[in-house]
Amino acid sequence: MQCEICEINEANVHLKQVCNGMVREVHVCQECAAKHGFDAQSQLSLTDFLFGVAGTQQDLLLPGSGKSCPVCHSRWNDFKKTTRLGCSTCYETFSEDLEPVLASMHKKDQHIGKAPAGRAACMEAAALRKALGEAVAAQNFEEAARLRDRIREAGTARPAATETEKAKC
């Protein structure tokens, strides 16, 4: 079997791990494994290697390095060990670190599905306001008038927002 990274050498490092119900397998040569930060003798989880979040092993082995989440106080190293975050605020705290992780897991980077009821209305209003600004900038006044009417309609059609919903916006 050929190494999946260099596609030249024989793969002699075979890794398999069940993560989040899915089995990830990698077959690589020793050279590529070392180059990408995997050392079979180390304490690091295979997940670091598979998800490409290993960074430098020394960094991982330094306890307490890096910032911590203001809500749950978990650190990025905690995520590296478990591939799970401490709370929803961690997504903001570790946003830069999470980018490559999210890119390896998902093909796209913008949510377009369902949203909580209050949030959905806010998102729609924000999208309409953005489109209105663009239409005005482009001097497309016909489109701007149409968008202005839609914003007004949305405002009157929607029941008064609750305090929670206002807070979410």
């Binding site: 591939t83 997504y91 999210l102 980077d109 949510h111 949203a115 949030r119």
Partner: peptide
């Protein structure tokens, strides 16, 4: 929930 990432979960997957 985040406008960009949608519903947030313990695992980013």
């Amino acid at each position: 929930f985040s406008d960009r990432l949608g519903y947030l979960a313990a695992c980013p997957s």
